[in-house]
């Protein structure tokens, strides 16, 4: 429902996972498999020489410091900023506006999501089937979508719960004169378990 970019989540996990897999496997192979061990040993001197040559060639003026190190530092800082932005990007997408429409040439009508939330909760909260309800609005593909989550009492048929909420949503359609896309989320949870069983009707 929220606008979390799930593809980047998976991409980050995949890249880090592959990296750890390759590094771990390489380290284990280097000490366990004789052939790998020998080639690794042969390459050691060469790699060290190459890297120290690079560090020599990339002197920063006459300070005696290679610019490779500051470059790595800048890269690390950029990566940290990108990662912080990545974390902050999670779970967003709530909106306070349920409906925005140009009703005339001179103005726009805006229905805040609070109106819709209160209307729906008024209709749902009295029902004995539910212990709790929560209504919020999200933007999905730049369309406001209502999310109505209800917590059922033990033993309530999910179909009945869905029908009750749907009826409230249809009433809201009539009230607003517009149909808003809606998600109904029916859950049980701990509070449902400690509350009493519903009576059969």
């Amino acid at each position: 429902m929220n606008s979390t970019n799930r593809a980047t989540n998976r991409l980050l996990i995949l890249v880090v996972g592959l990296l750890l897999l390759v590094v771990g496997a390489a380290a284990a192979a280097a000490v366990l498999i004789p052939v790998v061990r020998d080639t690794w040993k042969d390459a050691t001197g060469q790699v060290t020489a190459q890297v120290s040559a690079w560090l020599q060639q990339t002197q920063l003026g006459d300070t005696g410091v290679s610019w490779i190190m500051p470059t790595l530092l800048v890269l690390a800082v950029i990566a940290v900023i990108v990662l912080i932005a990545f974390i902050a990007r999670q779970g967003r997408g709530r909106t306070g506006i349920a409906l925005r429409e140009r009703t005339s040439d001179h103005g726009t009508t805006v229905v805040e999501s609070d109106v819709v939330e209160h209307a729906l909760r008024d209709a749902i909260d009295g029902r004995s089937e539910f212990v709790a309800s929560h209504v919020s609005a999200y933007r999905v593909k730049s369309t406001p979508v209502l999310k109505i989550s209800v917590t059922c009492r033990r033993g309530v048929s999910p179909k009945d719960a869905a029908l009750i909420v749907e009826e409230a949503v249809r009433s809201l359609d009539v009230l607003l004169g517009r149909s808003l896309p809606a998600l109904v989320q029916i859950s049980g949870g701990f509070r449902a378990r400690v509350s009493s069983t519903t009576r059969l009707q």
Binding site: A162, P181, L183, I186, G189, T197
Partner: peptide, 22 residues
């Protein structure tokens, strides 16, 4: 998911189990 013409309905397996148990 529960089929519905007006909304998208998702229901926790827990709720289905509790209704079936009754």
């Amino acid at each position: 998911l529960i089929q519905s013409s007006r909304t998208v309905v998702v229901v926790d397996n827990e709720v289905i189990a509790s209704a079936l148990a009754r």
